Simulated assay, not measured.
Amino acid sequence: MIIFVLSSCTGVRVKGFYQALPSQVGKWKAHDKDEFYNRNTLYEYINGGAELYLAFDFQQVFVRRYIGSDNTEIILDIYDMGSAGDAFGIFSVEREDEDIGIGQDSEYGGGLLRFWKGPYFVSIITTGEEQTAKPIMIKLAQAVDRIMDTKGLKPGLLKALPRDGLDETSLRFFHTDSILNRQYFLAEKNILKLDKHTDCVLAKYKGYDNSAYILLIQYQNSVLADDAYHTFLTAYMPEAIESGIVQVENETWTMTKTDGSILIIVLEATQKDFGMNLMAKIKP
């Protein structure tokens, strides 16, 4: 059973579909007042985790709590991430599990359901017994999915990646060095000169007895890309300033080049030829 009610939300910027969210799913009923947090108040809700969202174009989060007969909760968060690209980004940087067919991409694992659709990222978590709550969480997610009548495009930079050998669950989209270092640590300093204006894609590739990472960074123009290229070479692989290719201490290969406003880096290629072939297949 899913019961829908219309509620009035004043004094905050909300989307129309909030008013159509279910007030009850099965025996789980909405309780307490709905909550809203913006860029200035997000720390009040997720102190210690707000930096992740603020590294994207986060606008606002809507929070509704559902309580079951055993007084445990299911908590629904709907994040307005400002754009479809950043909604995909915040979903991607913590993705671990396979898609469960909700929204534009989704996953479920360990009592946490996550999906994105259009400019929105949705998180549903339970404080109760997972097997009891899971079907209710899925019904709630499907209801939210139906209410959202908009879809969005993934970041265009993803199209430059080769598809063969791509580990889809490893795909990450982000902007800043703080997020890069959560995914793949390069250096304490921001040697790639990342900021809110850079689009970054990181992905892992696997071949027969081979593997590597591809990191793509799109800058606002080719001058900025070239500047970051030289800074990266000087700081990370100074012995390869001429060639852009080096074998590092763990005997894997790192290689880099620019293509217009895009900086291309292949990391941890187990074989030089494997890394070179990957780089050749990148089509900015």
Rank of each mutant, 00 (worst) to 15 (best):
Y79W: 05
E98V: 13
I90M: 04
T72R: 03
Q142M: 10
G110M: 08
L76M: 06
E51I: 12
R39Q: 14
I136L: 11
H31G: 09
R65L: 06
D105S: 10
K154D: 06
L54V: 13
T132L: 12
L42F: 11
Q131H: 02
A160V: 12
L112W: 03
G49E: 05
G152F: 08
I100T: 05
I124Q: 00
A133H: 08
D105M: 07
D97A: 14
W116M: 01
E51D: 15
I100C: 08
Q104S: 11
V93T: 11
S83T: 15
I90Q: 03
E44G: 05
L157F: 08
D34C: 13
T150K: 02
I138G: 01
L112D: 07
K139H: 00
A143K: 00
E96R: 04
D32W: 12
L112T: 14
D34W: 10
D34A: 14
F58L: 13
I78C: 05
R65C: 06
F88G: 00
R65N: 04
M148T: 08
E130W: 07
D34E: 13
T132P: 08
F115I: 08
I147L: 13
I138Q: 00
E51G: 12
Y43F: 12
F62G: 06
Y108W: 02
L113F: 10
D145H: 06
Y37W: 10
E130T: 13
I78S: 00
F62D: 05
W28P: 09
D145E: 11
S69Q: 09
M81A: 11
T127A: 02
Y120V: 10
I147W: 02
A160M: 05
G48S: 10
E94M: 09
V63M: 09
V63L: 14
T126A: 06
F91C: 04
K151A: 10
L153T: 13
E98M: 08
L157E: 03
L158D: 04
F91A: 06
K151Q: 12
I102Q: 00
I90R: 03
D99G: 13
F115M: 06
V144K: 01
V93S: 01
T132Y: 05
E73K: 01
E51N: 13
D70M: 05
G128A: 02
L113N: 05
